[in-house]
Design a protein around this nucleic acid. Structure first.
Lengths: 331, 331
DNA sequence: AACATTTCCGCAAATGTTTGCGGTGGAAAA
DNA sequence: TTTTCCACCGCAAACATTTGCGGAAATGTT
């Protein structure tokens, strides 16, 4: 009764060879129904479970994906992770998660861990100042499929799936125009980040093309607190804005911290639109209208792409997840 | 140049045995400095990396933990996961995450997956209606250390680490008394859940013992929306409460959706206290005062306990994470 | 009856690593 | 000179599984 049952132990008890047991359990046509039955019965009795380590070694795969993200505890990434876990399990894969904590060094270590653990594929969102290019080139060269998401490398020879940032910002601009806003305060994030640049450009360009575009004041804020201060300042001006656009949850939080105590009515006195996955906008009353950028959907898309790659190496693609307007009561 | 370097390939190139290579790389004292140097050089050159599958098979461990949680995308669990990932990696372990989605069946499947993947230990928070007892008994019998967290089995023969629910509720009650509140609306969660029972009992008992305890009206709400309705109703009454206590983020969200539009001043007209990990309370202005129940701390504690168990099987313990008051401006 | 085919199963190699044990030289001790 | 000891290294088993190949017995075909 050496604890874990193995093929060998089963074969010994039945006086047949290991290979026969292996094949019987796999319903190999070479094995008679009779022995199959006997083997399966005994396997059940002995609570046989294939040793994953041995299987992995032999087949050279683990049915495990690696998932590297800057942070786990984050409204966007956690839903992404949830989606990937869900889809991966539906296809018989498990998930190892690693967080890089905005540290390029740790990101590299994570990539190495993926290599060490010999995962069957890796999903990764890069940190701001990533220096891991050599590593993920090497991983790919080693035959590990990779799907980049959210924060992706410039290199279009990799599979990338992202939010449609330009589209989202364009949609925001169109929405604001549609509602005939006259005086917009646009809260944007860190001007260094590519996501900010993309959204800003698309947003402003869309407005520029429009005849009766509103006045727009752009403010870059690197923190929630800064956003709050900006809004507070704006609200106290003579010509206070009639609309506030926030390109992220963080900024929305700051804005709301200012608007709510001000006593202004939403959307009567001032309207609000943000880009979000929807959780934060749902915390307010009325709920905030937002352009949806769903980590969950992005996750599902990423897994889909990964699985396609598992069959055969495909030419790289860049996939954009379309965004849509979710109407709350803030506009 | 067959892609991945192996001990065998290195040994062939150097005309020495596989075992010598293996030992050289491990700084085994039996090997001369000279050969060690040569081996290490070549290993570096060939970019040798031990094959995890083979190592696992041979050593019968993977340095991977399993982590099973009802949901990933959740303000409590995601910070727990983040903490576990962090601590695990610091100790050379990786993390496989599985979510059960409040489904007992899937929880069982997750446990089986942990067995199949032969993880070195599992962290698990049970689903509401868990039926996995036989499974985790079996896992433990198989020698896999387990630590339960948050939602844990009654069975005290298992390692359990939880929030100090009674203590948190007691602290809440004392705080409310200290601030001389007169008329409290207490929002509690689903009365079926053990966490609700614990907190309710401790909360009410503490108040009961006090001479100048406030009046308290208890309301069970199973959703954020219900909490909002309750609060709205209460605020419109003649004798509206001067304080609202929320035992969870969900309820706090609902309460705030009612309070903010009401125009009442916090804490002037009405004060608020909640039990939370701190994220949601930080979204408001003034920030909400709360009793902290940190998923992050809980995660660190859990890993600590797990690592202790890795050395040698220890007698089971039940660990409670003490809670503390975090002062915002809502009280 | 001779041959061909099918059915069913075992041998053995292979996956890459770890590790107990034994063995070979050479130098130091007796 | 013989013994002892140490430094250094290789053999081979073991871990559990998968799989190509070959082979024996049973069955089917002329």
């Amino acid at each position: 009764m050496g604890s874990p049952a193995t093929l060998k132990k089963i074969s010994a008890r039945l006086n047949i060879s290991i290979s026969t047991v292996s094949r019987a359990l796999k319903n190999h046509p070479d094995i008679s129904e009779n022995t199959k039955r006997k083997v399966k019965e005994l396997a059940l009795l002995m609570e046989y479970e294939p040793n994953a380590y041995a299987v992995n070694l032999r087949t050279n795969r683990s049915r495990v994906f690696g998932l590297i993200v800057p942070v786990i505890s984050n409204l966007f990434y956690d839903s992404f992770i949830a989606a990937v876990e869900e889809e991966a399990r539906r296809n018989g894969y498990s998930l190892i998660i690693l967080q890089s904590g905005d540290d390029p060094i740790q990101e590299s270590e994570n990539l190495k861990l993926c290599k060490t653990n010999r995962v069957d594929g890796v999903f990764i969102s890069l940190v701001a100042d990533s220096q891991s290019a050599p590593l993920y080139h090497k991983l790919r060269a080693g035959g590990t499929p990779m799907v980049f998401f959210d924060i992706v490398p410039e290199d279009s020879s990799f599979d990338r799936v992202c939010m449609a940032d330009e589209e989202a910002a364009t949609l925001a601009a169109h929405t604001i125009i549609k509602y005939k806003k006259k005086n917009v305060l646009a809260l944007l994030g860190n001007p260094e980040m590519s996501i900010t640049k993309k959204r800003k450009e698309a947003f402003l360009n869309t407005l520029k093309k429009e005849i009766n575009a509103p006045l727009v004041e752009v403010r870059h804020c690197i923190s929630s607190e800064e956003a709050r201060e900006r809004v507070t300042a704006a609200l106290s001006k003579k010509s206070r804005p009639d609309h506030i656009f926030c390109m992220s949850d963080e900024l929305l939080i700051g804005a709301m911290k200012s608007i709510y105590p001000s006593g202004l009515d939403i959307p009567g006195d001032i309207s609000v639109l943000s880009i979000s996955n929807g959780f934060i906008p749902g915390l307010y009353k009325p709920e905030i209208t937002y352009i949806e950028t769903s980590g969950f959907e992005l996750g599902k898309l990423s897994v889909k792409r990964m699985l396609e790659n598992m069959e055969a190496p495909l030419p790289a693609r860049s996939i954009l997840l379309p965004s849509r307007l979710v109407t709350g009561g803030s506009l």
